[in-house]
Amino acid sequence: MSCCEQARRQELEWLRQEVSAARGRRERLLPLLQEVQERLGYLPPQAMELLAAGLGIPLAQVYSVATYYRRFTLTPRSQHVLQVCTGTACRLRGADQLLSFLLQRLQPGTKASTGGGAGNAGPRGGSACGCGGRPAGESAPPVSVETVNCFGACGLAPVLAVDGRIHGRMDAGKAAELLEKWVER
């Protein structure tokens, strides 16, 4: 068993306890989904089953809720996330150019996904080796580029968040600098 699978087992053990404490309380579904997403970086099927059984909600409804919200992903998210704000203020000040620059640099040939919010964007925990507790074989690209509606830092548009940390007054040049520093680390 890899260190990550071990970590994931521990996480699920944690969830089992939480769920039994919340037995039958439907309103605990979203907070628990949030925690699983935060700890594992995605919602594995085992977690969904645990939640359904423990909270007394049909499994289909657990999926229905989880897939409704942008925050949750059913597949592992990347280790590192770049989020470009494409809100009104940022678009007016060059967010599109920033986005196409980043996509070209990091993921030639792909489109940005509309990812979750900044709250769950930090490097994901779950294991010391930094793989986010991901089981072997399920891999996500090391960096993903996502778009976000607005960080509420519109006065500093355009805005880019690197692993949840917001940087303002961006342009391609500054983004390139940031990326370089970041890759070094």
Binding site: E27, I57, V65, Y69
Partner: peptide
């Protein structure tokens, strides 16, 4: 304090309430 889940429509009051109840925010 309850954290949202990244759905704009959850700002609408009845959707927000649905979300607080653990449902789809519709």
């Amino acid at each position: 304090v309850v954290e949202g889940n990244g759905a704009f429509v959850c700002g609408e009051e009845t959707a927000l309430i649905a979300s607080l109840q653990g449902e789809r925010g519709v």
